[in-house]
């Protein structure tokens, strides 16, 4: 039997938002390299909070999260930044730079990932073409519709070819054909051995049986399949 070290480990993690809203209660969880984790549960169950803890937008109130065997709390600023450079994050609220163009928003992500790309302009336009956004490349993000902004957010997350892709409700504003397009991309990603953590309650995705499903309810882990 080969011992595999968990990529991410949650050890008795709780998150309480002041004064007393318990967003997550005593979560114990292991995510391995190459896992396709579907995080599901009703609205307010703690999915987004759990993702925020992974990319360290929030810190746990108690407990510890480990990246491989390194506790998050021991990560220095520089190490945290390097860790984030290896993440692809698709935010529920897109988190784009409204003053920058579509092209610039994607380019920033690529530059920050510090990965060598021979022809980044070509790569960006290839993704934009795939998502039918190439004509809007030079438009400011704030001039796009919600669905288009979401697509830009998705491209920004996946173009840097991250080790871990974290997606928070990535299909919320998309039409069924775009959802299928994204699912194809996610499957390709997974086949390349990448780790995907996806929070959703979209039935189209849930019915696909893509991987390990984790169900949360009122901050508690109720099912880990």
């Amino acid at each position: 039997m080969i011992f595999q070290m968990a990529l991410l480990t949650f050890q008795n993690v709780s998150k309480i938002y002041p004064p007393y809203f318990k967003a997550l209660i005593n979560i114990n969880l292991k995510i391995y390299k190459g896992d396709f984790v579907i995080l599901t549960g009703p609205t307010g169950s703690g999915k987004t909070t759990l993702l925020k803890l992974i990319y360290r937008e929030e810190k746990p109130t108690s407990g510890e999260i480990f990246y491989e065997d390194v506790p998050y709390s021991k990560l220095k600023k520089k190490e945290l930044s390097l860790f984030r450079q290896n993440l692809g994050i698709i935010f529920q609220d897109y988190k784009l730079f409204p003053e920058l163009t579509v092209y610039e928003n994607i380019k920033i992500s690529l530059v920050l990932s510090q990965k060598f790309v021979k022809n980044d302009k070509f790569l960006i336009y290839e993704y934009l073409e795939r998502f039918k956004l190439s004509e809007k490349a030079q438009k400011k993000v704030k001039e796009l519709s919600g669905g288009e902004q979401q697509k830009v957010g998705i491209i920004r997350g996946i173009i840097r070819d991250p080790e871990i892709l974290i997606a928070d409700e990535p299909t919320g504003n998309l039409d069924p054909s775009s959802i299928n397009e994204i699912l194809e991309i996610l499957k390709d990603f997974h086949e390349k051995g990448k780790t995907i953590i996806l929070a959703t309650h979209d039935p189209i995705i849930l019915n696909q049986n893509l991987g390990k499903t984790i169900r949360l309810n009122r901050g508690e882990l109720v099912e880990d399949v």
Binding site: E57, S81, I89, K95, I108, S109, S113
Partner: peptide, 13 residues
Amino acid sequence: KNQTQIFLLLGGT
């Protein structure tokens, strides 16, 4: 603040 946070979450310093 929002832009700074996005930048940090994308791996910037």
